[in-house]
């Protein structure tokens, strides 16, 4: 499995993501935002950071970059595109996923470990988890308060496209576990064909036992298995 990790000038989780993919046994390389060639990547990852400074709105300018034209084409043809944190915001702005991000309900940057529940496992990214598993995983964002209108939310729920939800330690879905205020506790959603995934928490930061957190590691394992590279 070859992952192309997109580097916008303000990306700052690109190197962490490459390291995590490689530590799981995958191959990863960087794709500069001014390029258009995806160099045969099996999966495109839009990493965390502040793509173009995000002074207008997170992800607003990134969607017009040369690389995003290719990424959107790639997704339209059924390619795997995975947006983490700022990458999720870019996916929303470019219309690859529905909805928008608002400022956290606390009006503060949120940088801590939180809990999310795995809602669906029938995606290339989550089939190595058990449905209902609770993951402890870091978040680091100022705008992660997911919003979509009622029809969109209903559609997402009906099509079982909410992949992760913020929850309490024991998996309970509540306002208490929903620190940024996202509608329906949404932490991650996928596209209709289930091949584009966006999530606010950082699995690449929960992929090493030395850091005391490894609940995100199975996402890379899922991808590798999806491409038949591990049993």
């Amino acid at each position: 499995m070859k992952c192309g990790v997109v580097v916008f000038p303000g990306s700052n989780c690109d190197r962490d993501t490459v390291y995590a993919v490689e530590s799981a046994g995958g191959e990863a390389f960087y794709l500069w935002h001014k390029e258009t060639n995806l160099r045969g990547a099996d999966c495109i990852i839009l990493p965390g950071g502040f793509a173009y400074g995000d002074y207008l709105r997170t992800g607003a300018i990134a969607r017009f970059s040369p690389i995003m034209k290719s990424v959107i084409d790639f997704a339209d043809k059924g390619g795997l595109v995975f947006g983490i944190c700022n990458g999720f915001q870019v996916l929303l702005e470019s219309g690859l996923l529905p909805g928008a991000m608002m400022i956290n309900k606390t009006l503060k940057f949120l940088g801590q470990d939180i809990f999310i529940r795995v809602e669906e496992t029938d995606t290339p990214y989550t089939h190595d988890y058990y449905q209902g598993s609770v993951l402890r995983i870091p978040v680091a964002h100022f705008e992660g308060n997911y919003y979509a209108d009622g029809d969109t939310l209903n559609l997402l729920e009906k099509e079982e496209r909410v992949i992760f939800r913020y929850c309490e330690r024991d998996g309970k879905i509540s306002e208490k576990g929903n620190l940024n205020g996202s509608l329906n506790n949404i932490a991650g959603i996928c596209s209709e064909n289930r091949r584009v995934l966006g999530m606010m928490p950082h699995p690449e930061r929960a992929s090493a036992p030395i850091l005391g957190k490894s609940d995100g590691f199975a996402m890379w394992k899922s991808l590798l298995k999806y491409f038949g590279e591990v049993a």
Partner: peptide, 8 residues
């Protein structure tokens, strides 16, 4: 196109 996000 860019200054606003029509979703919100």
């Amino acid at each position: 196109k860019i200054l606003s996000n029509p979703v919100i």
